[in-house]
Design a protein around this nucleic acid. Structure first.
Lengths: 188, 188
DNA sequence: AGGGGTTGTTTAATTTATTAAACATGGTAG
DNA sequence: CTACCATGTTTAATAAATTAAACAACCCCT
C-alpha cells in the first residue's frame, strides 16, 4: 500500500490551477503546511487533510482512489487464456475450477468462469469481505446458500448478494455446473 | 464532507474481530492510539492511519469510501425474473436483449445476460463513463471493438476493458450470440 | 468470593505536525 | 538594473498526535 500523499496533493492542486498559498487560504491552513505535505516531510492528520481538500474541493475518498487509469494491456481473451484460480482457494471439496478474466491489475471488477463437478462444494465463508457478488448459471444446477437462505439454481437463473454474509456453493446435481460470476471489489 | 473516522475505524476493526490491542500490535502502534482515534479525540496522521489499516488489511481508498450498502432484499433470481433493459438503450440496431440481475439498489455491480440476434449491433460510446467492464461469451460469436482494436470472440472467450474507451458490440455471425457481462459501477 | 485474563480508557512524557515569519528564486515592468 | 510581486522552501515556536504505563470494568474459571 504505497500511496504518495505529497505527489497526489500536488497533482490535484496543479490540476486545479491553484498555488500553494491560494489553496492554503481556501483551506484555512498555511502555505508552509501545503509545502511540507507535498514534499512528504510531514504527514497530515486526516482532519487537516480534510480541510485542505475542502479547498479544492474533493472528498477524502476521491483523494485516495487515485484512478489515473493505465488502460489494461490485454482486452481480448481466448478461452484458454483465462487464469485458473482454483489452486488458491482453501476449503473446497471436489473438483472446482475458477477461471478469471484478466489479471486483476485493474482491481475493481473480477469476472470468473466457474465450474463445479458433481458433488463439488466450496465452504468459503467470506468473513467481512466488503464486496458485492452476483452471477448467472449457464449449465447444470447449483445449490447456493447465503446466510440462512438456500436455493437451487438452474440455467438462466441468477443470484446477487453482499459477500459479507457467509455463503457457499454446492453442485448437488449429477452433471457439471457452469456459471459466470462477477465480484466488486475482487476476492483475492 | 463529514466523515466519522473514529466510528469507521471501530466498525471495521470489529467487523474483523480484532481488539484494539490486537489491531495495534499488527499495525505497529499502541492501543491507546487506536482508542483515541476511535473516540475522535485525536485525528491520526495519514501515515499512522495507513499503518493501522495495514493491520486490517485495508487500503486508504477503501477506508474512505464507506459504502455501507444495505443488503439487497432479493438474492435468488429465476431466469424469468431478470430485468429487461433493452428499451433503455439508445442507438442499437437489430434485436438486442440486456437482462439484468437485480435492480441496482446496491449500485456497485451490474451483471447482465446479453443476447444479440444475428446482425444486431450496439454503437454505444460510453464517453467518460468511469467503469470497468468485462464478460464471457457463452454462445455464438460477437465482434467487439474497443478503441482502435477489434476482435471476434466465441464461446468461452472473454474481454475486459475500461468503459471510458468507446466500444461497440456486433453479432456478425448467423446465429444468436449470448454472453454474460459485468460492469462496475453500473451504466445507467 | 477471589485471581488472572481480557477489554477499552486515561494521563504525563515524547515525538510529530502546524504555524508564523523569514528566505530564496523567477519573472516582469518601469 | 532595480523594484516588485509572485512562486515554493525553510526555520524556530507552538499546537497536536503518539507513546508508555497505569487505571477501571468485565468475563471466565476454580
Amino acid at each position: 500500500m504505497e500511496f504518495d500523499v505529497g505527489a497526489r496533493l500536488k497533482q490535484i492542486r496543479e490540476q486545479h490551477g491553484l498555488s500553494q498559498r491560494a489553496l492554503a487560504q481556501r483551506a484555512g491552513v498555511t502555505n508552509g503546511t501545503i509545502s511540507l505535505i507535498e514534499q512528504n516531510r510531514s504527514s497530515p492528520s486526516v482532519s487537516s487533510l480534510r480541510k485542505v481538500l475542502q479547498g479544492i474541493p474533493m472528498t477524502l475518498a476521491e483523494f485516495f482512489s487515485s484512478d489515473d487509469l493505465p488502460p489494461p494491456e490485454q482486452i481480448f481473451f481466448k478461452g484458454g487464456e483465462l487464469i485458473e484460480l482454483a489452486g488458491e482457494l482453501k476449503g473446497t471439496v471436489g473438483q472446482v475450477s475458477f477461471r478469471q478474466v484478466g489479471d486483476l491489475r485493474s482491481r475493481n471488477l473480477q469476472i470468473l468462469h466457474e465450474r463445479y463437478a458433481p458433488g463439488a462444494d466450496t465452504g468459503r465463508t467470506m468473513l467481512q469481505h466488503e464486496s458485492e457478488e452476483g452471477g448467472i448459471v449457464i449449465k447444470g444446477q447449483i445449490e447456493l446458500t447465503v446466510g440462512d437462505r438456500k436455493q437451487l439454481l438452474g440455467p438462466g437463473d441468477a443470484y446477487f448478494f453482499d459477500s459479507r454474509v457467509p455463503h457457499r456453493f454446492r453442485n448437488v446435481g449429477d452433471i457439471e455446473c457452469e456459471l459466470i460470476s462477477a465480484c466488486t471489489p475482487p476476492y483475492l
